[in-house]
């Protein structure tokens, strides 16, 4: 049962990754592409890592629990750093004077 839940989580995470990569190719300008990449990647990492952590703890020992804890730590750090990196890149774009895309141009 728990294996199926983790498989489902990993697959949903991959769907998010797919959306992020599609958005990077298809969206019109720098900021919107970055928006797709930053947000969907973070969500994809969260879901697929949650799936992996669930899979690791499905036969419960201390070692497996520690592995799951390390996976959760990865998620925590990605959650802190990935949006900040996106923020920094957007900041650099604004400073370089890149205008956001509007429907007119």
């Amino acid at each position: 049962m728990i294996i199926w839940i983790s498989a489902l989580l990993i697959i949903i995470g991959f769907v998010f990754f797919l959306g992020g990569s599609l958005g990077m190719i298809r969206l019109p300008d720098f900021y919107s592409r970055l928006h797709a990449a930053g947000m969907l990647d973070t969500m994809g990492v969260f879901l697929s890592m949650a799936g992996l952590a669930l899979y690791v703890v499905h036969d419960f020992t201390l070692g497996n629990f520690l592995s799951a804890l390390k996976i959760i730590l990865i998620v925590v750090f990605v959650f802190i750093t990935s949006p900040t990196a996106t923020h920094a890149i957007v900041d650099a774009g604004v400073r370089a004077g890149l205008k956001p895309w509007t429907k007119k141009n």
Partner: peptide
Amino acid sequence: WVPYDFVISRTCRLIIPF
């Protein structure tokens, strides 16, 4: 050179010890 804004400097302070 203008240093990066509040969000980035705080996040870096949070991450650097780790």
